[in-house]
Amino acid sequence: MAEEAVPTVIADGVNIIYKVIAGQGGKGTAATAFRRILKRQDRPTIREVHAVKDVTFTAYKGDAIGVIGRNGSGKSTLLRAIAGLLPPASGAIYTGGRPSLLGVNAAMMNDLTGDRNVVLGCLAMGMSPDEIQQRYDEIVEFSGIGEFIDLPMSTYSSGMSARLKFAIASAKSHDILLVDEALATGDAEFRVRSEQKIKDLRTEAGTVFLVSHSLDVVLDTCNRAIWLDKGVLRMDGEVREVVSAYNREATAAR
């Protein structure tokens, strides 16, 4: 091994089990809540979901990995585990640096205006006020929000807030960027720009994970793909091969 590729994410036999509240079990009065706390009991209606089953892979610097699979196959869960937000029940995930997760339902602060969200988001990522002042125009321009930047984010359409979130998160160069369907709601013009941004991030020798149901986007931006099926890793390889195998099965099932 002369030139070993530099790994950025290593997943080793990852199993993820999480708890969900299935339905509204009983009215939450103070007395019942208190009893539950005392007995350290979960709500009676909590169910366990085994979302990711024994997934192993290694991602390297410069990889852009598309994660594909049907709804509920564990794609978003896997991304959240890489981001360190969900602990694996068994197995381990090693990452170099702090991964950032960009999700479609990840709002910032909805009652604040767009420009305040830009400043707060950048401060939260650890940028200095000077740095923010320098990059502010660039971020706003990239988001394409225009004059709406003065309005509260709660007035934005889902596409607009996704654009702003992507613009904020991509203002800083990340070692590992996890994109969860965040581009799906943007319009065609924004999609082109964000795909370019993902390619730029790749050439900056970062690693990008992209969850998308749009196989065209995956083919355009990724060099590698992971296919998850009911939480199990079905295939991991060159993007064209994986996507065509996935396509074959999808058409065969019909």
Partner: peptide, 28 residues
């Protein structure tokens, strides 16, 4: 399919993570 991780692979991956300075993503 067994869900138990293969110990040899686990050791190898952990060693690779160590070598490249990767850390567990959910560490405090």
């Amino acid at each position: 399919m067994s869900t138990a991780a293969d110990p040899a692979r686990t050791a190898e991956l952990a060693a690779m993570a160590e070598r490249h300075g990767l850390s567990r993503s959910s560490a405090r």
